[in-house]
């Protein structure tokens, strides 16, 4: 290798971004059937899963209804709020 040659080093890095959780909180107003309906409509869940998550919200006060990349989590949270559900998002631990 002469002095004028340029050495190129290639380094591979794999970065796994932290997933985000979409959370829905219980409230005293929204009908249980409505919450199930919204989970099916927004998150595309079947009725069984949507009902299970709705019951978790109702009984535990909150439920993680979706986990994944940040942009999609923001989109789902925005949609759930547009349907008047108390929804938030946080980094998954």
């Amino acid at each position: 290798m002469s002095d004028s040659d340029t050495a190129t080093l290639t380094r591979q890095e794999t970065s796994l971004s932290t997933p985000w959780n979409v959370i829905v909180f219980d409230d005293p107003v929204n009908l249980m059937g409505y919450v199930t309906h919204v989970f099916m409509k927004v998150l595309g869940y079947n009725e069984t899963l949507a009902t299970k998550l709705m019951l978790e919200v109702h009984e535990a006060g909150r439920s993680v209804v979706w986990t994944g990349e940040r942009e999609k989590a923001e989109f789902y949270t925005q949609q759930l709020q547009a349907y008047q559900l108390r929804a938030s998002l946080e980094r998954s631990e």
Binding site: E74, Q81, Q84, R86, A87, S88, L89, E90
Partner: peptide, 15 residues
């Protein structure tokens, strides 16, 4: 008021 209340559900200061 409702929109503000829902927005306040977002606890993460990052967002």
């Amino acid at each position: 008021k409702l929109a503000h209340q829902l927005s306040e559900s977002i606890a993460s200061s990052e967002i």
